[in-house]
């Protein structure tokens, strides 16, 4: 640091001189180092293609149309197919609970509502229903 004992006055032009320095060749090599860092960062991340505003607008319109179509189709399907009512789910829940607590009795017998001895065909059907009853999707079949 140079020694300069003059009184400090902000109007002095010498004070406005840049007092900081940089290592030799810093600015010459900066762009290359920056490019290396950008490449490094981009190789880590999945490259995202920037879309211009008109393409973004078209993509947004397409997404909106697709969304409306999907919602409409879902509503159409819900209103035209035989859906399971809340009552059906309640019945299924009661049956499942009874089945859990009374594993001596077949679910088939519970549905049929009798406790008489089953013949060979009925016994097979009962086994099949019991097997299917392990999941909800299979239970739905019982009510269709």
């Amino acid at each position: 640091m140079n020694k300069n004992h003059n009184k400090l006055d902000l109007k002095q032009e010498t004070l406005k001189k840049q007092p900081f320095g940089v290592p030799e060749g810093y600015f010459e090599s900066f762009a290359d180092r920056l490019q290396d860092r950008i490449r490094e960062e981009e190789s880590v991340k999945v490259p995202v293609r920037r879309l211009d505003s008109s393409t973004r607008f078209r993509v947004a319109i397409a997404a909106a149309v697709l969304g409306v179509a999907l919602i409409s189709y879902s509503i159409f399907r819900l209103t035209t197919t035989n859906s399971i009512t809340n009552g059906d789910y309640l019945d299924m829940a009661v049956l499942e609970q009874m089945y859990v607590f009374d594993d001596e009795q077949s679910l088939y017998e519970l549905i049929k509502g009798n406790t008489e001895e089953l013949n060979e065909d009925e016994a097979f059907a009962a086994q099949a229903i019991d097997y299917l009853a392990v999941n909800d999707e299979a239970m739905v079949l019982l009510f269709e």
Partner: peptide, 10 residues
């Protein structure tokens, strides 16, 4: 990398 004089430092 500070190259200034004493007054610049102040």
């Amino acid at each position: 990398w500070f190259n200034g004089d004493e007054i610049q430092m102040k």
